[in-house]
Amino acid sequence: MAKISLIVNGNPVNANVDSRTLLVQFLRENLRLTGTHVGCDTSQCGACVVHLDGKAVKSCTTLAVMADGHEVRTIEGLAADGAPLHPMQEAFREHHGLQCGFCTPGMIMTAVDLVNRKGHDLSDHVIREELEGNLCRCTGYQNIVTSIAAGAKAMGKSA
């Protein structure tokens, strides 16, 4: 067992974990933050994307012990319970950027990271390139791309 201390969605967390615990397991099973999903479990689908020190990473391919001393943000950390949705979440709702919703937390965390890196005015081409590591099996991506473009603009206004 290993002792870890990290910040999750702004709150300090201390825990004793088996060193082989994946970050996604720790979030879902220890902290009950089940918004982060396990899709493929092989680093390809992006359903498990969270932010580690502000950067999108695949939490199914990150050991919880490696996050010791770092800061994690999950989909639950984008907007407080009862508060208005984060602009990117709102854009996915408005533009019907999901059907079953399984990939959506990862899509949104990837999209927010993309806006942080590349700004608020994103072409469809850039968005599609940046979604290389996020798979959706329902929508054909059209509305996801529309949602991200709109969400990126909205994030610029609300900033």
Binding site: G46, V49, L52, A56, T62, E130, E132, G133
Partner: peptide, 9 residues
């Protein structure tokens, strides 16, 4: 290489 999340690690 890979995708954006992979490149962050």
């Amino acid at each position: 290489i890979g995708d954006p999340a992979v490149r962050h690690k």
